[in-house]
Design a protein around this nucleic acid. Structure first.
Lengths: 335, 335
DNA sequence: ACGGATATTACAAAGCCTTGCATAACGGAC
DNA sequence: GTCCGTTATGCAAGGCTTTGTAATATCCGT
């Protein structure tokens, strides 16, 4: 039914190797022959069988992309960017998700290993050792996770966190809660470290609440603690949590931004449509997706680890942050 | 480096075909031999090479999933469901997106055709003829699109639209705007037809505004027309548009739900966190994703088209709909 | 003890393509 | 006119697995 290289060869009166070369090494075949072959190939609707090609070249033309949760609005733009970049390079992308479960992560890498030329590991929660081990089985590029031995695409959330905290300090806040993300998240740790450092530098100790589920529900759940600690400002691991906190505070009678200021991370669609509009740290997810694909493709050629790429973040000030009011904002309050 | 069936055969002292059968037809091999082979296979870290398997069986173990826009919150849950269902069946999913461009759609199907056992076409914008033609090249299952000759998974948006309109009528609205989605969308047409019918049945003619870009911006853009037509209620093609309309109305000084009621479609995360909470028609996206995968897998075995599946929708009443006020709501008003 | 059914394993072909090497054709240099 | 270097094409092996068929062993009834 589907035509093979053999059919094309017969129909155009050349040997199959010539047909093969017409596609994989065009410069080695006479222009005249080439166009004849191309013509008959087109008329027969011939397309090289990737499985057969993969079998012999050892390259599949596919890359895997593993994310924690497709429904988390942080990921779709990244997936989108990666997919389109890959397609431009004539690669396809397998997308899989882990539901934030490190065990699933490991299994997925192994399952994918055989049918891809490499795997993009996005915000992995696995241990360094395990990642190291898996990187022996299949080329790996990390996104949002730093390991010296592997190529990584990082977003400078430390910078973002510092900007966020500085913004709050400028507004007069000094009772700041830092809401961490899931256990094992590099991003979460970076945000925490940078935020804490920024707070201390300003002369006060932040309230660190971690780990949390990086979802709206996770945010709702932690709202009570935020009130208990009488924080006047919150830096949340991501927009979902930020929105959850606003939600939770609201149902406790605390208003944002009047009573408490909230900052998220990611600048997802949600941040732009939530009420109040969310002040948030914008992440270069599109660039990250593209860069990661390119690094992976290069790695799968070279097999020598390339370096790290650090992409810039940016604080977007919207309506969820206000100057500190008298009733909160001083370290002594509410103790 | 990576071990093959040959290594396992040698190490366990059997012929390669026995190893092969241990994996693909376990009942044909002596339990004792089987466990021995399994053990050595495990110790060598052997995993069957899918490319080689594909080459001979003609099945890749992959399915394609083509959606309009990954970043549209309608799709991620569907992708998620499809991916997990596929993985349960030991299949992997290629995800690709068209950016709402029918031409890209066609190219993607063709590009995917050779490396998948079938393609899930989600809300395609192509013409029936083209879909028909492509279905000759690769097994196709349609989601949100009805064609008699192909297996389809449909969501009963007609029912949802009717419920939405009835809800508005109960609230006393009779100046209802129907905001269509993109050109070529089956869903959009169904919603429009059912809504219009429901309105007429109630004795008034709705205001149909179509087509629109199915995004927040699309909703913002159409808000002015809604005001011009002095509609007291809006049924939008999806949640994004609904939120955009609310946005747009807000900046025109029209409040939702006090002045105008708005209903969306999809019950996406957005609907649950937007202010006001969005009244919306919930779509069975998860079930659709799962069902579609199963139908496709069956189709790729059978090659005979299976029928259509219609999944139920449900109106979720939240806070974006109010009883009609005196100043709007009667057909004569505002003319 | 023998024919025949059953169960288990080995053999070998086939699936489609890439690629190193051999061959052929051709032009130019000497 | 011979030899060499180019260029274009053919040849055949090889990649890893599945699967129809053949071979062997086992066991049953008689």
């Amino acid at each position: 039914m589907r035509s093979t290289i053999r059919d094309v060869a017969r129909a155009s009166g050349v040997h199959i190797s010539t047909v093969s070369r017409t596609f994989s090494a065009p410069h080695m075949v006479n222009p005249e022959t080439r166009s004849r072959v191309l013509a008959t190939a087109a008329s027969l609707g011939y397309r090289p069988n990737r499985a057969a090609r993969a079998l012999i070249t050892g390259r599949t033309g596919n890359v895997g992309l593993i994310v924690a949760d497709i429904a988390n609005p942080f990921f779709p733009p990244l997936i989108k960017a990666a997919e389109s970049q890959a397609r431009d390079r004539d690669y396809s992308i397998f997308v899989a998700e882990t539901d934030e479960d490190p065990t699933v992560e490991e299994n997925l890498v192994r399952a994918l290993a055989k049918q891809v030329d490499g795997v993009l590991l996005c915000s992995p929660r696995m241990s360094n050792d395990l990642i190291e081990k898996l990187s022996k089985e299949v080329p790996l590029v990390l996104i949002n996770r730093s390991m010296p031995s592997l190529p990584c695409v990082l977003m400078d959330v430390s910078l973002g966190a510092r900007q966020a905290v500085d913004h709050l300090i400028e507004l007069g806040h000094s009772r700041v809660a830092i809401l961490g993300g899931p256990r094992g998240s590099w991003t979460s740790r970076e945000i925490r470290k940078a935020s804490v450092a920024a707070c201390r530098q300003a002369g006060f100790e932040p309230i660190v609440l971690s780990p949390n589920q990086p979802t709206v529900d996770g945010g709702i759940a932690i709202a009570e603690r935020v009130v208990q600690e009488s924080a006047s400002a919150v830096v949340a691991y991501n927009d979902l949590m930020a929105i959850g906190v606003i939600e939770g505070l609201d149902s406790l009678g605390v208003r944002v931004p009047e009573d408490v200021s909230v900052i998220g991370f990611d600048d997802s669609t949600l941040a732009r449509i939530s009420r109040p509009r969310l002040t948030t740290v914008s992440n270069p997810t599109l660039a990250a997706g593209r860069t990661a694909v390119d690094m992976l493709l290069q790695l799968s050629d070279d097999r020598r680890a390339t370096g790290q790429v650090m992409l810039q973040t940016e604080l977007i000030v919207r309506a969820s942050t206000n100057p500190a009011t008298g009733s909160h904002g001083t370290p002594e309050e509410g103790r």
